[in-house]
């Protein structure tokens, strides 16, 4: 079981309120991702759940039990740190065994769990090495192994992939998702990378300045961002956010249209412009259109085989069915166009 409930949880460092009163429900078995820009309080929130920081107010419930005052070791949660936090003078085997040694798990049971974890994480050949002799990805796996063997009721990850290179990051992302599918244990995962959030989460929590901007499944956030912040944060490349007369035309202060929801034509369309930089990814082409008379450069996604070059004239037509409208306060206007 791993249900975590935050009730009006608050955190202040001195006079600075990093987390204003915050409410959140994390269901058993869910993969929840906290996402938000750097410094918005994601790590602090995770550390509050872990018990590594004291709350300034509110309650934390784990499986319905008030755990606000429970020391970290007694909460039954395992954490994977951004720096991995492996014990440098212990071998991989000893690192993984450490939490079990502290819990006085019988030796044969320890061996069995280490064996299983090493096999699942491809660490069998490295059990006798020291962390210093491993690559970044292997260290990350050791840190995960050390968490798994505790058989926690929930895993907490703090930006576990941010120290890895791009290729490895994609690989580890899949491994962690696999792990979640296999163990079906609650996972709370912190990242500033919206791609990680979109690809891994059952539920995304978008944070800004300690505040929850929106909670929902990746597709909910993609299809119906509650406000401008979420609209701009979720999706890659970013949604085009247009203000001024172009937005007024649709009865909004700001309109948002994703690059993939804009039609491209060489002859007719709503906005006429010039192709600026284009990025060819093979499967897709992103190009940036200028000189449309709008204040903003428009990002457009097209197929990989489109034949457009720098300086060409194009006509763009937004798909109004996929358009997002926001009012003066930046909130979504729910009514369809």
């Amino acid at each position: 079981m791993g249900r975590i409930t935050l009730e009006n949880v608050t955190k202040r460092f001195g006079d600075v309120e990093v987390i204003p009163p915050l409410n959140l429900d994390i269901d058993d078995g869910e993969f929840v991702v906290f996402v938000g820009p750097s410094g918005c309080g994601k790590s602090t929130l995770l550390r509050l759940i872990a018990g590594l920081e004291d709350t300034s107010g509110g309650r934390i419930l784990i499986d319905g039990q008030d755990a606000t005052e429970t020391p970290p070791a007694k909460r039954g949660l395992a954490m994977v740190f951004q720096s991995y936090a492996l014990y440098p003078h212990m071998s991989v085997r000893k690192n993984i065994a450490f939490p079990m040694r502290m819990a006085s798990v019988p030796q044969d049971e320890q061996d069995r769990r280490i064996e299983a974890a090493a096999k699942a994480l491809n660490l069998t050949d490295y059990l006798d090495r020291k962390p210093g002799q491993l690559s970044g990805g292997q260290r990350q796996r050791v840190a995960i192994g050390r968490a798994i063997v505790r058989e926690p009721s929930a895993f907490l990850f703090d930006e576990p992939l941010s120290n890895l290179d791009a290729a490895l990051r994609v690989g580890m992302r899949l491994e962690i998702s696999e792990l979640h599918n296999r163990l079906k244990t609650t996972m709370v995962y912190v990242t500033h990378d919206q791609v990680e959030a979109m690809t891994m989460a059952d539920k995304i929590v978008v944070l800004r300045a300690g505040h929850i901007e929106q909670v929902g499944s990746p597709m909910e956030l993609y299809r119906a961002p509650k406000n401008l912040f979420v609209a701009g944060f979720i999706g890659s490349p970013k949604m085009n956010l247009l203000s001024g007369p172009a937005a007024a035309e649709y009865g909004a202060e700001t309109i948002g249209i994703r690059p993939e929801h804009i039609g491209v034509s060489a002859t007719t369309g709503t906005w006429q412009g010039r192709v600026g930089v284009s990025e060819h990814l093979g499967s897709d082409t992103f190009f940036y259109v200028e000189g449309t008379g709008l204040a903003e450069t428009i990002t457009v996604r097209a197929g990989g085989d489109i034949d457009l070059h720098h300086g060409d004239t194009v006509f763009l037509t937004p798909d109004t069915a996929q358009m997002h409208r926001f009012d003066a306060a930046g909130d979504r206007i729910a009514a369809p166009i």
Binding site: P72, M79, M102
Partner: peptide, 28 residues
């Protein structure tokens, strides 16, 4: 490293265990 200490704390090591298993080897 502070995170090592926190990791050990979450792993259930009390202050004496943390001293023996982390601090002393680190200071060797």
């Amino acid at each position: 490293d502070g995170e090592q200490m926190e990791a050990a704390e979450m792993d259930g090591a009390g202050s004496v265990s943390r001293f023996i298993h982390l601090t002393l080897p680190h200071m060797a």
